[in-house]
C-alpha cells in the first residue's frame, strides 16, 4: 500500500506543480510573473518525462562492462536535454519582449496596459480619426 502510494506520489506532485505554473500564467497580471509561471510549468513537464523513463534498480544510461545491467530509458533524457536549452532561449525571448513592452507603456501590469489601450481607443472614437475613415471608404 505504502509502496504503491509512493509509486504515484511523484505524478500527483508533478500535476500540482503544473497547475501552480498554470495559475501563475493565467491568474497573475504581472508579465514577469507570467514568464516565471511558464518556467515552472516547463520544469514540471520535464519531471514528468524523466519519471516515465525511470526503471527500478536501473543505472544511468552509460554503458559499463558487466552484461546484466539494467539501464534507465535514455530516450526521454535526450528529449528533455535539448528542451531545457531551447527553453532558456525562448525564456530570454519572452524577457526581451517584456522589456520592450515596459519601454513602450511604462508598465508591465496587464491592467495598466489594457487601460492605456482603452484610453487610446476612446480618443480615436472622439476625434473620429481612424474609425470614420475606415467606414467612409
Amino acid at each position: 500500500m505504502i509502496s504503491s502510494t509512493i509509486g504515484i506520489w511523484n505524478y500527483w506532485i508533478v500535476f500540482c506543480l503544473m497547475m501552480i505554473g498554470l495559475f501563475l500564467v493565467i491568474g497573475r497580471k504581472n508579465f514577469l510573473k507570467k514568464i516565471v509561471g511558464l518556467t515552472i510549468f516547463q520544469t514540471s513537464v520535464f519531471l514528468l518525462y524523466i519519471t516515465f523513463g525511470k526503471i527500478k534498480g536501473g543505472t544511468p544510461p552509460i554503458l559499463n562492462t558487466s552484461i546484466d545491467t539494467i539501464y534507465s530509458n535514455p530516450l526521454p533524457h535526450v528529449l528533455i536535454l535539448t528542451a531545457i536549452v531551447v527553453g532558456v532561449a525562448t525564456t530570454a525571448l519572452g524577457l526581451s519582449l517584456v522589456l520592450r513592452i515596459n519601454s513602450e507603456y511604462g508598465s508591465i501590469e496587464e491592467d495598466d496596459i489594457s487601460a492605456q489601450d482603452l484610453v487610446d481607443y476612446h480618443d480615436e472614437i472622439e476625434t473620429g480619426k481612424s474609425i470614420d475613415l475606415k467606414f467612409k471608404q
Binding site: 530570454a92 524577457l95 526581451s96 522589456l99 515596459n102 519601454s103
Partner: peptide, 8 residues
C-alpha cells in the same frame, strides 16, 4: 544584449 540595453 540584456546588459547593454539602453532604455530611455
Amino acid at each position: 544584449a540584456f546588459a547593454s540595453y539602453n532604455t530611455i
